[in-house]
């Protein structure tokens, strides 16, 4: 495996995976704490519309995905405050319309779109330097925003009404957080794709919640857990290739690993549940 790291495509895969883990772990912790994973799933799928538009109009699909995810964040974030019970329906509309638009755009685009599947399920082994640069930019934006606004995000996730009453502009803060969630999804699209993106945002953070009782603790632990899952997925994909000559994409393997870690953590935590988790 160490030798394999001489290969530039594996170096890029590793780098992209580690960089995406930062965004996933930070934002996934908010998503899990506020219990908005279905909203987040909606953003991820809506992003596919932008991928299709990119193919049709001839600009980088990841740029289109960013635009669509941000637009979906605005639509879903506003609806979250106004709709109440109707929200679930609205999220599934945004979810499916985004996907449908993507497919229609691609069909209208001249020629065949060869790596369409790679946006649906990721293609970590074919990540370009341009993509890595884009992930770095989004990471910087997310890290900076969390560093500055974390107390506001935390307050709005915990008790939006009180935050409003205490004088915080809760609506703006929540929309900002939804925007960052959209950006975090974009960072993982090349790693696991729009369909599996939600898993990488929620599984590590949910596992982290077993072992820590603060959002900061969850963030640190879930960044480490996502990174470990992605590295594990890459190693496993290489090992399967060497041993059996089969080609399995590392992204889905990373998700499966994250799920196994979650299951093991749940079991372990239930055993130690007699003692409450440390602060």
């Amino acid at each position: 495996m160490i030798d394999a790291l001489d290969q530039p495509f594996l170096q890029r895969a590793l780098l992209a995976g580690l960089l995406a883990s930062v965004a996933c772990g930070l934002i996934g912790s908010y998503v899990v704490a506020k219990r908005i994973s279905s909203l987040t799933g909606g953003l991820a799928h809506a992003a596919f519309g932008g991928v299709g538009l990119g193919y049709l109009a001839g600009f980088p699909p990841l740029l289109g995905a960013t635009g669509f995810a941000l637009l979906a964040a605005l639509l879903v974030g506003e609806a979250q405050r106004r709709l109440g019970e109707a929200l679930e329906t609205w999220v599934s509309i945004v979810w499916s319309v985004g996907m449908a638009l993507g497919i229609v755009f691609v069909a209208l685009a001249p020629g065949y779109a060869p790596d369409l599947m790679s946006y649906l399920f990721g293609s970590l082994l074919f990540v370009s330097w341009e993509t890595i640069a884009w992930i770095v930019a989004l990471d910087v934006l997310i890290l900076g925003s969390v560093a500055v606004f974390h107390p506001l995000f935390e307050a709005v996730c915990f008790d939006e009404e009180y935050a409003e009453v205490a004088g915080v502009r809760a609506e703006a803060v929540f929309l900002g957080l939804m925007g960052l969630t959209a950006l975090a999804i974009v960072t993982v699209i090349r790693v696991v794709g729009v369909i599996l993106a939600i898993a990488l945002l929620t599984l590590p953070a949910t596992t982290a919640r077993h072992w820590t009782s603060s959002l900061r603790g969850m963030m640190a632990l879930s960044v480490a857990l996502s990174a470990a899952s992605i590295v594990g997925g890459l190693v496993l994909a290489q090992a399967l290739g060497t041993a059996f000559g089969v080609s399995v994409p590392p992204g889905p393997l990373a998700i499966l690993l994250a799920a196994v870690v979650y299951a093991a953590s749940s079991g372990l935590q239930r055993r130690t549940a007699a003692t409450p988790p440390p602060g």
Binding site: A33, P151, E154, A155, A163, G167, V168, S213, G217, G279
Partner: peptide
């Protein structure tokens, strides 16, 4: 009304009172 499963410590909850104020 509160989700007591929310990952937050007592002093962080109290600090929220200062957030939006003068």
């Amino acid at each position: 009304r509160f989700d007591q499963d929310f990952p937050i410590r007592v002093e962080d909850v109290v600090r929220m009172g200062r957030l939006g104020s003068r």
